[in-house]
Computed example of a mutant assay.
Amino acid sequence: MSDKTSLFQARLKTNADAVEACLTDVLSQAVQPDEIARPERLMAAMRHGVLNGGKRLRPFLVIETAAILGGDPQAALRVGAALECVHCYSLVHDDLPAMDDDALRRGQPTVHVAFDEASAILSGDSLLTLAFDIVASPETPLSDRQKTELVLALARASGIGGMAGGQALDLAAETSAPDEAAIVTLQAMKTGALIRFACEAGAILAGADPEKRRLLRTYGETIGRAFQLADDLLDLTADAQTMGKATGKDAERGKGTLVSLRGQPWAEAELARLVTVATSLLAPFGASADILIETARFVAERKS
Score class of each variant (00 low, 15 high):
Met1Pro: 09
Lys4Thr: 13
Leu7His: 10
Gln9Ile: 07
Thr14Pro: 03
Ala18His: 11
Ala18Asp: 14
Val19Lys: 00
Glu20Gly: 02
Asp25Met: 11
Val26Cys: 11
Leu27Met: 10
Ala30Gly: 10
Ile36Pro: 02
Arg38Val: 13
Glu40Met: 01
Glu40Cys: 01
Met43Phe: 04
Ala44Ile: 04
Ala45Glu: 03
Asn52Met: 09
Asn52Gly: 15
Asn52Ser: 15
Gly54Ile: 05
Leu61Gly: 01
Thr65Asp: 11
Ala66Cys: 12
Ala67Arg: 15
Ile68Lys: 03
Ile68Met: 14
Gln74Met: 14
Ala82Cys: 04
Glu84Tyr: 05
Val86Gly: 00
Leu96Trp: 10
Ala98Gln: 14
Met99Arg: 09
Ala103Pro: 00
Asp116Val: 12
Ala120Val: 11
Leu127Thr: 02
Leu128Ile: 06
Asp133Ile: 08
Ile134Ser: 00
Pro138Cys: 11
Glu139Tyr: 09
Thr140Gln: 03
Gln146Asp: 08
Arg156Thr: 04
Ala157Phe: 05
Ser158Ile: 05
Gly161Cys: 08
Met163Asp: 05
Ala164Gln: 14
Gly165Asp: 12
Gln167Ala: 14
Gln167Lys: 14
Ser176Lys: 03
Ala177Arg: 14
Ile183Asp: 02
Ile183Gly: 02
Val184His: 03
Gln187Arg: 10
Ala188Leu: 14
Ala188Cys: 13
Lys190Cys: 08
Lys190Ser: 08
Gly192Arg: 01
Gly192Gln: 04
Ala193His: 02
Ala193Trp: 03
Leu194Cys: 05
Ala201Lys: 02
Ala203Leu: 07
Arg217Leu: 09
Gly220Ala: 12
Thr222Gln: 10
Asp235His: 05
Leu236Phe: 07
Met243Leu: 15
Met243Gln: 01
Gly248Ala: 11
Gly248Met: 12
Lys249Val: 12
Gly254Asp: 08
Gly254Asn: 08
Gly256Phe: 01
Leu258Tyr: 11
Ser260Gly: 15
Leu261Thr: 09
Arg262Ser: 09
Pro265Asp: 14
Glu268Lys: 06
Glu270Ile: 06
Ala278Pro: 00
Ser280Thr: 13
Pro284Thr: 13
Glu294Ser: 02
Phe298Glu: 00
Arg302Ser: 04
